[in-house]
């Protein structure tokens, strides 16, 4: 069985607390949910259910640091789709469909969402484009029937939902699926000597243009400070006149 894992580079969510005031420009890391996807693929290979793991990401040459991190974790091959545009989920899904058609994996695993834009759409859209089954928000994966089907436990608001899906399929990972291994220095050094395959949208014969345009990004408005009242009468008056809730 061949697994394709897709991942996104995002600004390190731990950076602010790590380096504090002296932190330089935010460092990039593999999106934590995608890191869980990579770990799951590695564990599937380690228990003998997969023979090859191919990792794919989309981005400028700078994301190769995260590609090497994926190689250092233990994926067999890595592909970078060279595209530095800010792509929306549909564009990403269409590019990934082209990669799937080229690589022909039995399973595609990715994080349920990226921690930067929280779109939570690529996995679903990719499954739709391919006409494949999907299991999203997965916290457990097992393969059945000579690896023709997968039993996946999904984390939903109603509780743990167990579904069986036919392969090939798309699986998106939730937080509790596993604890990703850390990249070791020997792994990192070895990863430097390994090739990173680079492809372009042209080479994949896929033309994407954004369907969504981001107009602005801003911090949520700060909550105004509360006021202290001296008496119950004053409180009631304020609730009546200012808050107009009474």
């Amino acid at each position: 069985m061949k697994i394709l894992v897709s991942f996104k580079s995002v600004a390190d969510p731990n950076e602010a607390t790590l380096a504090g005031a002296a932190a330089s420009a935010a460092k990039s890391v593999i999106n934590p949910f995608d890191e869980i996807a990579i770990e799951e693929a590695l564990q599937i290979r380690e228990r003998g259910d997969a023979v090859e793991i191919v990792a794919v990401t989309i981005g400028a040459p700078a994301v190769e640091e995260q590609v090497r991190a994926a190689l250092a974790m233990g994926v067999d091959r890595a592909i970078r789709i060279d595209d530095s545009r800010a792509l929306d989920p549909y564009a990403v899904a269409r590019i990934l469909r082209a990669v799937v058609e080229k690589e022909v994996p039995q399973v595609v695993i990715m994080g349920k969402q990226a921690v930067d834009d929280d779109s939570n759409q690529v996995g679903q859209m990719l499954a739709g484009l391919l006409g494949w089954p999907q299991a999203t928000f997965v916290s457990k994966v097992e393969f059945l029937d000579n690896k023709t089907r997968a039993r996946c436990t999904r984390e939903t608001d109603a509780g743990l939902e167990v579904v069986a899906i036919d392969l090939p399929a798309v699986i998106t990972t939730d937080l509790r699926l596993n604890q990703p291994r850390y990249v070791s220095l020997p792994g990192l050094i070895k990863a430097r000597r390994r090739p990173i395959e680079t492809l372009t949208c042209n080479e994949l014969r896929v033309e994407v243009r954004p369907l969504t345009t981001v107009l602005s990004i801003a911090n949520p408005p700060k909550r105004a400070a509360g006021t202290r009242v001296d008496s119950v009468e004053e409180l009631i008056a304020k609730l009546r006149q200012e808050a107009k809730v009474l």
């Binding site: 731990n14 790590l18 460092k27 890391v29 640091e65 090497r68 850390y182 990249v183 220095l185 990192l188």
Partner: peptide
């Protein structure tokens, strides 16, 4: 890259 990996691992 190596130093960042040390920092991330250790923290």
């Amino acid at each position: 890259e190596l130093l960042d990996a040390v920092g991330r691992f250790a923290s």
